[in-house]
Design a protein around this nucleic acid. Structure first.
Lengths: 205, 205
DNA sequence: GCCGCCGTTGGCACTCAGTGTCAATGCGAG
DNA sequence: CTCGCATTGACACTGAGTGCCAACGGCGGC
């Protein structure tokens, strides 16, 4: 009831914001313009979004949840490279599937410094989530073992790289093949049989 | 002459800022306080630094140049993993060598969201620089080959991870050993004999 | 020594993001 | 009908960042 209205207002706000921002550029649009076209007050905007950037970037949070959930749902027997590959596919396939909506937003984010910065923050959160997930999956300690965080970093880095390519190609090249290439490249390290363990670290090497 | 004075004022400003920020936290310090203790006007502050964050983070730019320069200076015969390892060592050793100064700044950056965001932006710049350097080093095309950007991402990710560990240990653990561990982990992918080339990509795989 | 040139500075006014506060509104439960 | 409860709008305020202009201060030419 009230929950649905919140959803509605938030959608109205993002839609108005996205249209304006895409047309005039991020810096040239004030929040007063956004709320004017959305028909709510300035104060209400900040009840829904913490900042001007958030109205563009907020949806990335659920993307992060999606990635981590996918990783958590992969079978335990699967190799890290394989599991991470599937996890990274989730948001990228989502982009490719809704390229008419997503492409404009992604290009806006990647070409606007303030938005790209927020995007990088989100990626760092994703990486932390994947790090924890990988650690629990492999029975490693995320605080002492380098592997989980480096592996998560590689996955997020792959995501970022593929997204850039996809964006710059105007949505022409499909992410799937690039992901495949990236992970065959990374697999030798991701799936190396010998990994640093907490015990090794304590014993000094 | 005038150049030296600029250097002097900038130093005065950063010193005053760092002292205040470390004591009271980033958000609790206003630019008016900083310029008051530094003895210059508010307007002058923004002639030297583009933002409040920049006064803390600006030195990272030259760190990026240092990393890239080190990579460019490594012998061409050296393997990518080896060359990148040396490049990443540069800023980390600099931190460890001046840990009395650097540790406080690093901890401030890592625990302040606004500063960490700027830090991530810098890392992205570093990665782009390393990507270009690697591409030219290996005769690859940074636009079509995934390898240079992924490899640069691994290097920057290693830097970030090691810096975190170093910061959280209070400067106790030396970065050198961690870097070694990280690169032996990454070497199988970094130095894999077969890499994607521009020609392979054009022919579809 | 005097004068104009140029770079740096300070002060001022302004826009805009973001926050706290409070009164008004709307709505369902009792 | 009325009492909460949540949402909203309006107002005021702080603080970051920018544009503009006048005032300094060194420096070479005259």
């Amino acid at each position: 009831m009230a929950q649905r209205k919140r959803q509605l207002v938030a959608g109205e706000l993002t839609e108005a914001a996205l249209r304006l921002l895409a047309r005039k550029g991020f810096d040239a649009v004030t929040i007063d313009e956004i709320v004017a076209t959305a028909g709510v007050s300035r104060r209400t905007f900040f009840r829904y979004f913490a900042s001007k950037e958030d109205v563009v970037v907020q949806f990335l949070a659920e993307m992060g949840d999606g990635i981590r959930a996918e990783l958590a749902g992969r079978p335990a027997a699967e190799s890290p490279a394989e599991a991470l590959r599937h996890a990274v596919r989730v948001p990228l396939d989502a982009c490719a599937d809704h390229s008419d909506r997503a492409l404009g937003v992604v290009q806006l984010i990647l070409r606007t410094p303030a938005l790209r910065a927020r995007f990088l923050e989100r990626q760092a959160e994703w990486r932390d989530g994947l790090t924890a997930e990988l650690a629990s999956r492999l029975g490693l300690d995320a605080e002492t073992d380098l592997y989980p965080r480096l592996a998560a970093g590689m996955a997020v880095s792959t995501f970022d790289t593929v997204l850039h390519r996809w964006s710059e190609s105007g949505g022409e090249i499909s992410p799937a093949a690039l992901i495949e290439q990236a992970f065959t490249l990374l697999a030798p390290s991701l799936d190396a049989p010998v990994r640093q363990t907490a015990h090794d670290a304590e014993s000094g090497r």
